[in-house]
Design a binder for these strands. Structure first.
Lengths: 225, 225
DNA sequence: GAAGTCGCTGAGAGGTCGCTGAGAGCCGTT
DNA sequence: AACGGCTCTCAGCGACCTCTCAGCGACTTC
């Protein structure tokens, strides 16, 4: 059973490594996010222990990058008790379990065994509207099984619309959420990006997922159009 | 947060119920598909946990039936590891997430939270008058389940009438609320818009929701006409 | 039944809104 | 330095929405 331990607290990492080795695991340790992504991509681990606070590439970014690369090794995240991040965010990004520091070593071993036993990693929550799917962890959008590539802005807009699928959202709401909470420019930019999305999501499939509600805003059909 | 747990493995269902209760959820448990549909239709849950293998009506059929009835509560499906179904089928049928048995309880809780969070805030009250409904959040108007598209002005007028359904409201009250508090033009514009609403809401259904009270104003029938 | 008031209706002018194509500015890459 | 991708601005256009107006019918009052 191979474990990749990622933590920049050298002392803690070393303690854990020794304990896990005694428990029969083969352990590799790296201390920053970039090395973690590299190590996990290069060779196959059964499970990854990933701290959030990391130099160069923090735990969330590293996890997202791994999932984006198609690495689905189960990940147990280590979160500080009162960190700035919402712990459940970890799940949205494709983590499979988490532990709050400080943690009991026995619990860690038990969780790791459970993750390994359970096998494949859990799928992150995927937004669905008919045959339109958006996977936040992999930052991937598909219609009818076909991948759609979007720019960051287009992606942000679609994610917002899908989070509110079925509801009518105003351009100002969109601007405040997808652009800037203090946006005060021309709302026309939303129209422009809605058009871009329609050209990529609707036109090629002869569908109409994004409806215009004149005078109010836009609505993404719950069934994907 | 109310959870409906549907599973015919009594032992498992009970364990989950206790765990969720400890985690602060209000849990209701049923053990077959028909009861699930009934329970979910009768009262509002924040999320439904639905096993696939169920007596009387299996999970897929139950889910389809719920959606058919317009129940859009988020559903997390439980799938057996090597079942006959492809897991991704769940998405096609309108499930919002799934977990493979056996699953980690911690993951279940996190997923439920994510689903509830994703579902957004509680819907505001939907205005109802007979078979006429107006949903302010979705900005959607329906008569007998059929969507009616309204212009902003028409929508504003109908919203006002439905807020005062059963009461007679004068044209001046309408003008001050729907048009402008300092409106001083010709009240005839209200007559014109009442007509537009009648053409869209009443005429196609051979109904008379909006009554004229000569010399007084208008009244929207509480029972929708 | 005549006169007056009130509400209904069809037509249309004018304004607003959203859509669209073109292109400028800004990056990061080659 | 040139290029390509991304973001955003802008102005023209067409469709839609709002409101006005005048004629007519219905109801009320005398």
């Amino acid at each position: 059973m191979r474990v990749l331990m990622v933590d920049d607290e050298v002392r803690l990492a070393d303690t854990v490594r020794r304990g896990l080795t005694d428990a029969g695991f083969a352990v590799e340790v790296v201390h920053n996010g970039e090395d973690a992504v590299w190590a996990a991509s290069e060779s196959a681990f059964d499970v990854i222990v990933l701290d959030i606070m990391l130099p160069r590439l923090n735990g969330y970014r590293a996890l997202a990058e791994l999932r984006r690369r198609g690495v689905w090794t189960p990940v147990l995240m280590l979160t500080a008790k009162d960190g700035e991040y919402d712990q459940t965010d970890a799940f949205d990004l494709g983590a499979d379990d988490y532990l709050t520091k400080p943690f009991s070593f026995i619990v860690l071993v038990a969780r790791l065994r459970a993750l390994i036993r359970r096998g494949g990693p859990e799928r992150p929550v995927v937004l669905v509207a008919g045959d339109l799917t958006l996977d936040p962890a992999r930052r991937r959008v598909e219609r009818a099984g076909q991948e759609i590539t979007l720019t960051p802005r287009e992606y942000g807009l679609l994610e917002f619309l899908m989070q509110h699928r079925g509801d009518t959202v105003s351009k100002m709401e969109i601007l405040e959420s997808v652009w800037d909470p203090a946006f005060d420019g021309d709302p026309n930019v939303v129209e422009v990006y809605v058009r871009y999305l329609r050209l990529k999501l609707d036109a090629p499939f002869d569908r109409h997922a994004i409806e215009t509600v004149r005078g109010m805003g836009y609505r993404l059909a719950s069934d994907g159009g």
